[in-house]
Simulated assay, not measured.
Amino acid sequence: MPPHEDLHTIDGDVYVSPRYLAGSTGTGDPALAPLLGLGWDLQHDDLGNVYVHAPDRRVRLGYLPEGEDDGLWRINAYKDPFGPPTWGACFNDRTPTEFVRAFTTALASAYEQGPDAYLARPVSGDGEHDPFRVVVPFIKQGWEFDRPRWGVFALQSPEGLAGVEFTTGDLDPEAELTTRDARWQLWAGKSIDRPAWYVTASTDTPVALLTAVTQCVSDPTPLLRWQRNTYSYIEGKVQLTPILPPEPPAPTPLDVQRAAASRRPAALPTPSVPRWTTTSRPALSGPRR
């Protein structure tokens, strides 16, 4: 277990289902933990933005609460530390923290395997690197193909409040890294044009990293949240289950014995009465002389 694994556990008073309507937890520590557990360098600026660098500077993460836009998490990888990014991913400020953590956990594992893993390009029909693997978790959970649009492959959740899009054709590499015009886009909310949260990933983002996110998003297990922090856009569309106090354990035979003993009345003390014997003399009548 990485040394930061047990820090800042996520708390709450309700379970939110489906989990992609849960919103952010408001803390970045759980998603930073997998990388910090590998000994990656952490720095921060005077505004409170955090920067994490791999030892060889070929992977960089920015946690940017004071950034220029709502892109709270920006993660880039490089073939050349001084060249342009090979791939980039962005999670906005309301993305559930668990989804970011799924990505950073997969990234930590890929980094330990080496550049062939964390710089692996998607290749159609190439088994584990086939981009189609990214959407398989959604198909297994009943997500449906969205209305066809030219150059866009899309799936939507059963109630229509989440979706994933894959754009075909040539894209501007710089725009993929700085805007939502990226190869991959995952979102939840009323529509893709007005998402509550979104994730973007550029063309060469490794399939294994994206699949880790889609598996986490499609997981039917609810997420723990504080009810006061749930968002208005999910009203009537999400199930909130209060956390009930744990039931007391079943009594053991010894517990039953102790309880019975506590209810048993105490024995009355034996009264002190003089015993009559044959040697006793009858009481004298009249005054003693």
Score class of each variant (00 low, 15 high):
67 G>A: 11
68 E>S: 13
92 N>P: 00
111 Y>C: 10
140 K>E: 12
67 G>L: 08
116 D>M: 07
110 A>Q: 09
54 A>K: 09
109 S>I: 11
134 V>D: 01
118 Y>M: 09
80 D>Q: 12
110 A>Y: 06
72 L>I: 02
83 G>N: 10
108 A>N: 04
68 E>V: 12
101 R>P: 00
61 L>S: 02
49 N>C: 10
141 Q>T: 01
106 A>T: 07
139 I>T: 07
106 A>D: 04
79 K>P: 00
97 T>Q: 06
81 P>H: 13
93 D>A: 11
63 Y>P: 00
121 R>E: 12
51 Y>W: 12
75 I>P: 03
77 A>E: 11
91 F>H: 02
60 R>F: 04
86 T>H: 15
79 K>Q: 11
93 D>W: 09
86 T>I: 03
88 G>Q: 13
140 K>I: 00
108 A>G: 14
62 G>V: 01
50 V>K: 11
64 L>I: 00
135 V>A: 10
105 T>M: 01
95 T>L: 07
103 F>W: 04
110 A>V: 04
58 R>C: 09
138 F>Q: 04
68 E>I: 12
51 Y>K: 07
128 E>T: 14
64 L>R: 13
117 A>T: 10
112 E>I: 03
80 D>C: 08
148 P>I: 07
121 R>T: 05
144 E>L: 13
85 P>F: 12
78 Y>E: 10
126 D>Q: 13
125 G>I: 02
104 T>F: 02
93 D>M: 11
80 D>V: 09
140 K>C: 00
65 P>L: 07
65 P>F: 02
76 N>V: 12
142 G>T: 10
112 E>L: 14
54 A>F: 06
52 V>C: 09
138 F>E: 02
55 P>R: 11
76 N>M: 11
91 F>Q: 05
73 W>L: 08
136 V>S: 04
105 T>P: 00
102 A>G: 01
49 N>W: 04
51 Y>V: 08
132 F>D: 13
90 C>G: 03
143 W>H: 04
78 Y>K: 13
117 A>N: 08
92 N>H: 11
140 K>A: 08
118 Y>A: 11
103 F>P: 01
140 K>W: 01
146 D>C: 05
93 D>F: 03
110 A>T: 04
114 G>N: 09
61 L>V: 15
78 Y>G: 06
118 Y>C: 05
105 T>L: 09
93 D>E: 14
113 Q>I: 09
128 E>F: 08
127 G>Q: 13
99 F>C: 00
85 P>Q: 13
148 P>R: 15
103 F>A: 02
146 D>S: 15
144 E>A: 13
147 R>W: 08
126 D>E: 15
90 C>N: 14
111 Y>V: 13
95 T>Q: 05
139 I>V: 15
126 D>S: 13
70 D>W: 09
125 G>K: 09
100 V>Y: 00
120 A>W: 00
114 G>R: 13
54 A>W: 05
59 V>L: 14
49 N>Y: 05
135 V>N: 01
98 E>F: 01
58 R>K: 15
104 T>P: 00
131 P>V: 05
133 R>N: 14
55 P>L: 12
128 E>Q: 15
91 F>T: 03
